[in-house]
Computed example of a mutant assay.
Amino acid sequence: MGYQFIEWDQGWDYIQKGIMKLKRIVEGLSEPQFNSEEYMRLYTTIYNMCIQKHPHNYSRQLYDKYRETFEEYITSTVLPSVIEKHGECMLQEFVKCWENHKIMIRWLSRFFSFLDDYYIAQNHTSYPGLNEVGLNCFRNMVYQKVNANVRFAVLVLIGKEREGEQIDRALLKNVIDIFVEIGMGQMDAYEKDFEGYMLIDTRDYYSHKASRWIWEDTYTNYMLKAEECLRRERDRVSHYLHPSSEKKLVENVKHWLVVLNVTQLIEKKHSDSGCSAWLTVDNVEELSRKFIANVILEQEVPAQGSTLVQQAEDAAMQE
């Protein structure tokens, strides 16, 4: 790798041209991809500017410019494009900007990789690496400003799906993945900025449903609805929520649909004809599974109902 002395203005002007080309590529404009020669010239320019003797060693200036490049692009282009939109359109733009930002990080961190390999690794280990700098810029300047609106739009779509509407599940997964990825290995952003609110929204939704169903439906219909709700919530986890939410979500639904209404359910159970009186406060945890087994067996083999129902209950208790 040949060495060539480079003044700051000369070197930064050339680097900026490469950055502008990258921005056009990211934005989908008519711009050819970087070829190997262009990549190596950018890398070599930055390398040479970092190995020059003081006062012409520009490592710190380039490190700062790397961060400022993201800050300027976010301020001028990314943030306005997200905040001017609403609802599902905002979610789509948010996902697009996040994906573009990751592309920017990937390419710029390659061009500036000598900073990671030498300037940070050997002299300034307390400094965040280039990848972390890029992610922090998006987290601090975009995510922190719009995550409340993003969360609201996501919860609106989940509410629509709970009411039977078709929604773009792939979009929701992409959005929710950002809550996870923005934590950079930690789940704090997902849990604090999304999951907690989602569980509150779930509580409100099912407490309202329970207050209606407990008066409108028979015990059998109520429990079938409860079982279906549990199935659908598990399905949501498998399609777009983080797996860590499943237990909390299921317990939330059980609590508001079953546990808080157990006294009224017991009364309904005893008042409905043709049902064995196996429901007690002590076995609420197994309520839905045992009930389904009970109903199925009573419908299929009424003559042998009591014996087989007991067997089904015993099997359910052992699961």
Rank of each mutant, 00 (worst) to 15 (best):
K225A: 15
G134T: 10
E195Q: 06
N294V: 11
A315G: 08
A312K: 15
G185E: 04
H239V: 02
V253M: 07
L29C: 11
I200G: 06
R41D: 09
L287C: 10
N221G: 14
D282E: 13
D177Q: 12
D116C: 03
Y119R: 04
C275D: 00
T44F: 10
G159E: 05
K53C: 10
H270G: 11
H270Y: 00
Q264D: 10
G129H: 04
I83K: 11
K17Q: 15
K268I: 06
E233M: 12
N149P: 07
F152N: 09
Q264L: 01
E72N: 13
E161K: 13
I178D: 01
Y206K: 08
I178H: 02
E7S: 13
V301H: 13
D64M: 03
D217Y: 13
L91H: 03
T220K: 00
Y119P: 07
I105K: 04
R169G: 07
M223I: 05
I178M: 01
M198S: 02
V154R: 00
S59K: 00
N136I: 05
A189I: 01
M1A: 08
A303C: 06
C229L: 03
Y205C: 08
E132I: 11
F152D: 01
Q264T: 09
L42P: 00
S245V: 04
K192N: 11
V146S: 09
I83Y: 00
I83L: 12
K290S: 03
M317V: 05
I51C: 01
P243S: 09
F111I: 05
E286V: 03
I6M: 09
E72M: 12
Q144M: 12
E251D: 13
I214D: 04
K248G: 03
E251Y: 14
M20E: 15
F291R: 01
E37K: 09
Q10P: 08
E71V: 04
C97E: 05
R289L: 02
V253A: 09
S276W: 11
S76A: 15
H270N: 12
